[in-house]
Every structure is written in C-alpha cells, then in structure tokens.
Design a protein around this nucleic acid. Structure first.
Lengths: 355, 355
DNA sequence: CTGAAAGCGCTTACAG
DNA sequence: CTGAAAGCGCTTACAG
C-alpha cells in the first residue's frame, strides 16, 4: 500500500525534492504543485518513512525508557508521564523492563542504542554500579536517571531525597509512640532506593536513641509476605510498626497481617513508600511517602529533551515528597495485645474457592 | 563514538561487505579477516545501526502495542507479557497509551506506521467502530486485537468471552442469594468490554427472572466512587451486591463503601473483573473474573509474529477465564441492616493529615 | 573467501 | 519556485 516519495513525485509530476518540501513545509511552493502533490498523497495513501528520515537526519526523534517493571504502578505512572511529554514534543518512546536485573538493563540499553534513540531515561537497580549506565556513558548519548539518585555530580537525576524522606516518615512513626519499628524490603539488594530508605530510617531511629534492626528482606515470591509476617508476629518483642520500602509491598503485608488475625493499625501499624493511588482506595488508607510519579516521568522527559537540544546539564535537585499519614499508621499500643490466630478473626470472611 | 561500518572496514582493511558478513555471520570468512574485523569493532565500539538495516531489509523487527492506559495493572501486565515474547524473538516494542480516546488510538497507529513497525497489537475502545483499526487495515500491516473481541470473522483477537464470563459471575452472585445486583462501570461508553460484560450480567438476571437495571456509569474522576456509593446506599431498595466492570473500579468502590460505614461483604458484596494481583492482597480478597493478562499479552505477540511470518489467520478462540470467589462476595443479607453513617465506624481510623 | 555497486526512503546543499 | 545529485548506514545479488 503505502508507497514512497518517488510514487508521489511521479504521480504529481514533480521531483522527490519538491514532495519532500511539501511534506515538511520547508520551502514555498506554487499553488498548483501543492495541489497536485496533495492529491497524489491522498490517492496513494503516502506516509513518510521515519526510517528514511532518520537515516538522513541522523536523529530518530525516538526516546528509550527502562524501568524495573510495569507492574508496580509507581513505574507505570512515571512511564505514562514520560510518554505524555515525549508525544507532545513529537517523540516516540521505546520501553523496556528489566525485572530488576542489571544485565537486562544493560542489554536494553544496547538494544536502544542499536535503534539509535536520541536519548535514554532509566531506573536502574543500583546507579553506583550499573553496567547499563556505563554503556550509556560510553555511547555519548544523553541519559537521565529516574528514581535513582545521581552517581556523580554531573548526572541528571529526577528523584526525591530518599534518605530524608524515609527519615521524616520514620520520625512520624516515632511521633505516634512506636519504639519497635521494623524495616521490610523486597529485593533489597536489587534496589538502591531501598537501601537509601533504610539509611534514612536508621538515622531517625539512632537519633531517637534506638538501635536500628537490620532490614527484613522479602523475596516477593509465593507467600513470602505471609512467612515473614508469621515470623514477625511470633517474635518475642514483635514490632508495633512496619516501614515497608514500597507501597505494593506494604499492601501485601497488610493483607498478610489481616490473614493472620492482626488488625491494622490497632495491632500493628504499616507505612509504605511511593504514594500509589491504590493506597488511597483501600481502608484503612495507606500511610506513605508520596512521590509525584507521573510528574517525575514528565520531568525526566523534559530534562532529557533539554539535554538533547544541547542544554548544559545543571546539577539536579531533589523533587519534593510528601509525608502522607493514613489510616494504616495508628498510635503504638500501650501493651501489645495478643494477636488471635488466623481464622479466629470474625471480621474477615476468607472464601477462596474457585469455580 | 559509535562509528559506522565504513570505519570498521577501513580499520580492518577490508570492504564493508565483508564486515557486514562478519556481523551477520552470513558467509564464511578467513580466520585472519575475522580477527582483524573483531579487533576493529572492539576498538571503535561499533554497533550496527538498526535504522540502516531496516531501510535495506524493509522490515524493522519492531512491534507496536496500544493500550488504554498503563495505570490499570491488567494492561500493564499484558504489555509485559507481550514484551517478553517480543524480546525473546528479537523484536523491539513501541508502546502507546490512548487514555480511552479513539482519536488518540488512531493517531498512535499513524505514528507506529510512520515508524514502520512490522505489526501492531491493540486494545481499542470499541472494536466495532474503531478508526484506529481502519487505519491498520488500510495499511495492510498485520494487527491483532487484545482484550477486544473480534469485529469480524477473520480478525485475530486475544480475549476471554466477556459475555459468558460476566454471566457466570453473575450466576455466582445470584447463587449467594442476592437479588438486587447493580452493575457499575467506569467509562461505559468508552469500553466495549464493559458493554459486553453488562450484557452477560443482564442475561443472567433475566434468566433468573429479574429485571436488569441500567448500568451505573462512573466518571472515574475526583470522588465519583464516593458520590455513586452515597447515592446507592441512600436508595430505597439498595442493591446487596455490586458487579464492577473491572477490578480497579471494584477496589475503589470497596474503599468508598468502607468510608461510608458499609462493611464488605456483610452489608454489601462487591465483585470485579480482571483478576489483578492486588485484588488478592487486600482483605477481604476481591471476588473477580480472572483473565490471564500476562499470558494474553504473550499470546497476542505470538499470534502477531505468526501473522508477520505469513501464517494464515485462523479464527480466534476465546481464552479461558476463571470465576474467582473471594471474601468480597458474601451471602445476601436477609434483611438489609441499616448502614451507619460514615465516621461512626469504629474500626476505621481515617487520619488524612499531610505534612 | 572477498569486493564493487546498487538501492532501501528520505533531506538538503547547490544550481538555476 | 523547482530539480539533479549526493549521501545517511546498511545488505545482497553479481562477479571473481
């Protein structure tokens, strides 16, 4: 179908250069030629080939973005924001997910570079030791970090201050009277954000004269949350509050707690990080450190586009976060009440048959 | 950096044809040339340009996928599945979201066609009247539908049987003794799936000798769920069960119900459609019609790839769904208990300050 | 085993 | 206002 610029030129009785000028509005044309070209284009159903254009222009108007997963709304939202800005600027975006694997990240960068993207945005596992980032740097293509904090001064990074945010949230939890606060993380090793958040959490505890326990790592597979919760509840000096390194984890943990007969926040408080929309839909609402995910994606794209246009890379500033208190964070129980075993909780009807 | 095939050839002291053959392993080469080319490639950091390749080959090894939004996990998951298969087959994928706007859908198709994708997968608002689909067809490029049911016999569509699935779920609700069941939909007009599901719901009601009320449409903006819930609860003959056209809506509705002091499923049952993972994390777990989202994306890609390789388009069959009962669906209350006004619900601590 | 040459679809000086 | 020609980075007959 389609047809090329040659077909249009032939049909319109002019040169391909003239057709090109018509399509791009790059030079004044006589009314007559204009009309003939217009008719030819309509008849043929001509659509300029971006790949022909790209080859000549040495620019593809294409951007690549790599995130750990699309399943976590915090990344899906940022991708959406990124895409919105890209589209508005006439750019197409290539998306890849790494599933939290640094090798896959690097591979995705290779692929994107092969496709000659004009720039890349990436959320990597660990910005300080990222093969993907090394490939980007070696290529000389503009790149911005999203959610990761910069690995060096001249790197553009769109992120909140994870340490500070986690510290503030921990202070909010402490302010509710909690003294035994555990930190739970999924894939701790695979996320520099988790580690930074743990640091902020630990700082707040130390400042309050408490000794921060090591993070509880969850595998995020199968019934990991349930197993972890069972252990936590059984513990002698069980925590009264849980700081989860992200909201999806927090939601899973709350579900597990309820299944084990613990009431949130009465028996145990839970706070998360990210501020995903679903956290506001559930009851109790999820206390969380809200990041402006969508706006972060938009910002990453704006910054990347600026870089592509040759802007100088100013040192990046942290974006603002918001400590969002919610129903899942309650006052610390004076004396931890015994938690009735799972099943004996009258409020929860757990019918899980399937037809 | 990069450098082109010419740079490699020059450095290796051979022709670009030989370099090409080396890179593609497309002809036997003498050990010596092989080594020289290898060294040259390493020295230069050469990476073949897909755009040069594509132009010559008249194929880009690129696929486009268009979904309404990445924010709904059901779409994010299908995109992930699609991507997995594409990647494994050496294809790169372009993603666009339509935000449920048919014009945007068509625009996205135009863009992808301009990028010369080898095929497209799309979830459109309404397959029966889709400008996007018309553009795909006119282009002659292979295309498959995802979540939409086929608009005609020879269209490849990866979807469950929405009517049947919704009917079965409604029967399950009826089996719990419910007689007043309302159907809630977000963007009813913008989703043929919602309409098909409503049809299945209506069929089941009629079969049970009940008169199906018209669907309740929600705008999905601001506090639409809360307003709708307030109206539903206030209604004289208020429903005892709500069939929500998708899980995200169902979760939002459950949250709204709780805020209004209604207990799920004690006062009102809620069922959804999609079977998103989060529905299983919350308590009570969400009763839903589970679709294999990720596998559907994988299947769409497999089918599309087959089409691209010239396979004949066999008539598509429905994928299997699963009626997943869950805590949110309980027996119908004998006598609807009065629902206490919001705030008087002792169990829910709703502290929504923000720092 | 290797090379010269054509051509994929475009844009853009250079001329006129 | 318009055209002929070069060239963007590749692959692939055609020769040898």
């Amino acid at each position: 179908m389609a047809g090329t610029i040659h077909d249009v030129a032939e049909r319109a009785g002019c040169s391909i250069a003239t057709v090109s000028r018509y399509v791009n509005g790059t030079a004044p044309l006589s009314l007559e030629t204009r009309e003939r070209i217009e008719a030819a284009i309509a008849a043929i159903g001509y659509r300029p080939s971006e790949i022909g254009r790209s080859l000549k222009r040495q620019a593809t108007r294409t951007l690549g973005i790599i995130v750990p997963s699309l399943t976590n709304p915090v990344f899906a939202d940022s991708v959406t924001g990124f895409q919105t800005v890209a589209r508005a600027s006439g750019y197409t975006v290539l998306i890849a997910t790494s599933e939290y694997d640094p090798e896959v990240e690097a591979q995705a960068v290779e692929t994107f570079l092969g496709q000659s993207v004009d720039g890349l945005a990436l959320t990597v596992c660990d910005a300080m030791a990222s093969p993907a980032l090394a490939v980007v740097d070696a290529s000389g293509k503009p790149g911005v970090l999203l959610y990761n904090q910069a690995d060096h001064a001249s790197r553009l990074a769109v992120t909140v201050d994870n340490v500070r945010a986690a510290r503030e949230m921990t202070e909010a939890v402490l302010a509710k009277g909690h003294r035994r606060i555990a930190f739970l993380a999924g894939r701790f090793a695979a996320s520099d954000r988790s580690r930074l958040r743990y640091r902020g959490y630990a700082l707040a505890l130390v400042e309050a004269g408490l000794k921060p326990p090591p993070p509880v790592e969850l595998d995020f597979l199968d019934d990991a949350p349930d197993a972890a919760i069972a252990a936590l509840i059984a513990a002698e000096n069980r925590p009264t509050a849980l700081f989860c390194s992200n909201d999806v984890l927090a939601l899973a943990i709350i579900g597990a707690l309820k299944r084990h007969g613990a009431q949130v926040p009465h028996d145990m408080s839970v706070v998360g990080f990210d501020g995903i929309a679903l956290g506001q839909m559930v009851e109790p609402t999820l206390a969380s450190v809200a990041q402006p995910a969508r706006r972060m994606g938009e910002r990453a794209c704006t910054d990347l586009l600026a870089l592509i246009s040759g802007a100088h890379s100013r040192p990046s500033e942290f974006l603002g976060h918001e400590i969002r208190l919610g129903g899942s964070l309650g006052p610390a129980p004076r004396i931890p009440a015994p938690i009735r075993a799972a099943g004996s909780n009258p409020g929860s009807t757990t019918q899980q048959e399937s037809a």
